[in-house]
């Protein structure tokens, strides 16, 4: 049971990062290779805010809002120029910014690793729920991720703005012709994606060390999640992230030397049996 909860915990944090990636791909058709950098900025923004204010809530808010603004600026100034371009061009621009963002962090916060520290409110004994051990902080983390999943899922399928976003993803020319500012929608979606990664980074900051380049390993796992779940599918990202969390958790018990291998093996199996991912749609 403890390994199941541990799988859930790993999966939920992964979901928060991966869902932004999948959202951006779903609407903008851009593989945002620099997504990990937003996770990193979220963590650093949260740490600095926490050090200045000692408020955990403000720290989370700063992580999310800071990366949302960064995402918006990044999309409007740079990414919007390469939407029509070759995929390779988009990847190169993103990769260039991975390196630039890492160096910016190095210049502002220094090359050495940092830690934010766990807020006193969460420095309590773990809870025992249905035979599994769950630290209260991770309960909060799971809660935030679930809320994000529900709001995004319902928002995209039910709300008016959600419908506009989906329409823009499907046929931007038509949406634009109807008098809707697609540039604003694209910028908004990119900002939302960046915000989710930033929030994940902020939530991870109290339990992970902060270093320039910390987004990269998270990015790789997020790609695995989106490939398994299906590029562009929010439900797919959730299921993919949870499956990956459970594989990591139980794999470390059963096959401690092959945990990484198991993750990739699972991805290969999914790709071979369903190339679009578990919840991916066939290309039109």
């Amino acid at each position: 049971m403890t390994q199941t909860t541990s799988g859930l915990i790993i999966g939920m944090l992964l979901f928060l990062v991966a869902v932004g990636l999948t959202l951006i791909f779903g609407v903008l058709k851009v593989v945002n290779f620099s997504h990990g950098a937003f996770y990193m900025f979220g963590a650093y923004f949260a740490m600095t805010t926490y050090q200045l204010t000692e408020s955990f809530a403000l720290a989370m808010l700063a992580g999310a809002a800071g990366t949302a603004i960064l995402g918006l600026v990044f999309e409007r100034v740079f990414m919007s120029r390469v939407y029509g371009a070759d995929v390779l061009m988009q990847l190169l621009v993103c990769y260039a910014f991975v390196l630039i963002f890492d160096d910016v962090v190095r210049i502002i916060w220094g090359p050495e690793f940092k830690a934010m520290g766990m807020p006193a409110a969460f420095q309590v004994m773990p809870l025992f729920i249905a035979g599994g051990v769950v630290p209260p902080y991770y309960l909060l983390l799971i809660g935030v991720a679930l809320v994000a999943a529900i709001v995004l899922g319902l928002g995209l399928s039910r709300s008016r703005i959600g419908k506009v976003i989906r329409a823009a993803a499907h046929n931007p020319g038509m949406v634009s012709a109807l008098g809707i500012n697609t540039g604003l929608i694209y910028g908004g979606v990119f900002a939302l994606g960046g915000m989710l990664a930033g929030l994940a980074g902020a939530l991870a900051a109290p339990v992970r060390s902060l270093t320039p380049g910390m987004g990269f390993s998270v990015l790789i796992e997020s790609f695995i999640v989106t490939v398994i779940g299906g590029m562009g599918s929010i439900l797919g990202a959730l299921i993919g992230a949870l499956l990956l969390g459970l594989i990591r958790s139980f794999g470390s018990q059963g096959f401690p030397l092959f945990v990484e291998g198991l993750m990739y093996l699972f991805m290969v199996i999914v790709l071979v049996s369903k190339p679009t991912g578990l919840f991916g749609k066939e290309a039109a």
Binding site: T2, Q3, T5, S6, G7, I9, I10, L13, F113, A115, V133, Y138, A204, V207, R208, S209, L210, T211, M214, S217, V218, R248, S249, G251, S252, Q253, V259
Partner: peptide
Amino acid sequence: QADYTEVVTKILQAKPQALYSCLWGGDLTS
């Protein structure tokens, strides 16, 4: 590695009396 959750829970379940680690730097603090 960024997330050690599965490692931590695995060790807790094995219920050892002592743990040795040579993790270092940012990995150790995480």
